[in-house]
Design a protein around this nucleic acid. Sequence first.
DNA 1: GATGGCAAAAGTGTTGACAGTTTAAGGCGC
DNA 2: GCGCCTTAAACTGTCAACACTTTTGCCATC
Lengths: 225, 225
Amino acid sequence: MSSEQQTLAEKAFESIYAMIMSGALPLGGIVNEVALSHTLEIGRGPVREAVQRLQGLRLVTREPYMRARVVSLSVRDMVEIFQLREAAEGMAARLAATHMSDAEIAALIERFERRRAGLPGPDGETPDVFDVHVRIAEGSGNSRIRHLLCEELYHLLRLYRRRSGALPGRRGEALDEHWQILRALQIRDPALAESLMRSHISRATELLLATLPDQAPRRADNTAA
Amino acid sequence: MSSEQQTLAEKAFESIYAMIMSGALPLGGIVNEVALSHTLEIGRGPVREAVQRLQGLRLVTREPYMRARVVSLSVRDMVEIFQLREAAEGMAARLAATHMSDAEIAALIERFERRRAGLPGPDGETPDVFDVHVRIAEGSGNSRIRHLLCEELYHLLRLYRRRSGALPGRRGEALDEHWQILRALQIRDPALAESLMRSHISRATELLLATLPDQAPRRADNTAA
DNA sequence: GATGGCAAAAGTGTTGACAGTTTAAGGCGC
DNA sequence: GCGCCTTAAACTGTCAACACTTTTGCCATC
């Protein structure tokens, strides 16, 4: 964790990512390469590379000569993400049920129990809300699914949670559902694990859909008649 | 289709992508930025941007000061891609069953019938093997799933098909299975469409798994005792 | 007062040169 | 002859300047 990163582009990426998360760069706002290069006191090349990586993560949109903008994150976007999560995380749970070792599952369950009881973890970790989901994605043994979930989707979920409507609460039910999923892993039932995970995410998706301002009009045309 | 593209980086991206597909850049081979910039007769900046985009698509691997390499595409990688496809395309089929219009489904079925009979399409199109899959991904109405399948995974499938083992044949069965999926769309049965799509891809995954050189050892530990 | 074109300003795309790191070659000792 | 260290070559990372495009503000015109 030294202040001396490996490459300036990496440092720029993390800085800009943090700016988006903190709101220093507002949600629909413009991402100015030269302004950022002055702020970060580096050349425009690394900034440009970082913005391109952010575009790869779909955190900013960018077209040839137009200015780059931070993503807007409409409810519609969130619904799409949740639908993809339902599919990918369901498969991750299915794979994890046969791929994770007994020790890994036991450790995950113990960790979960501690968190549930409000205790700090055995190693003073950061108790992320997505903890169970991350562990299962990693435990799937499928690096592409893990990358999709952990590197591409969870960033957007965190952003939405922090800077928009805080993603329907559901604390209690979610814990119960997590527990059932972990049990399915423990008894090595892939179909059950997938089914439970899909139901878990599907319920959240339904809540999101209920938040939709009715049916999104295809185009918002504000030109006065 | 003019030779004058919008931006040089875009041109570089397409050129390098074609080089990988044609084998001009071999599968595990090194991607040299200055050599490419000389070959394409452009500066190193656009080449660099293109390589980064290729890295985003996971077609090349790249670490800070190391040379970039074209991906290797092991059977293991293909199995991971197929597992993700099973999940994502299954969801795409489920969504398409409620989202596609009657006209879209009818057009897709007619197109499929023509191809099946060996006729050229009504508009002289390119009869891609992934045609049905692409149309369903687009018909899902979920831009993120469409992007994942059409922009990130199908490239790798085409590459593997052309430059490695030609992905288990199964021409006849695949056509039948496609037909059943289209029928499920037509009768508006989301669960059936998803189930059929998953079975369709799962069968191909099984064939791939059978190709695996037995079972991949978890770690290759060559330290002598 | 509103609308259209025109010009300056701001911003992105591209280039060539320089700095830092890795890789490869060469020489030295064993 | 083989292995290790030194050194040069090759390559990637970074920067500052230039070219092209878009945007913005202004002015004339309707």
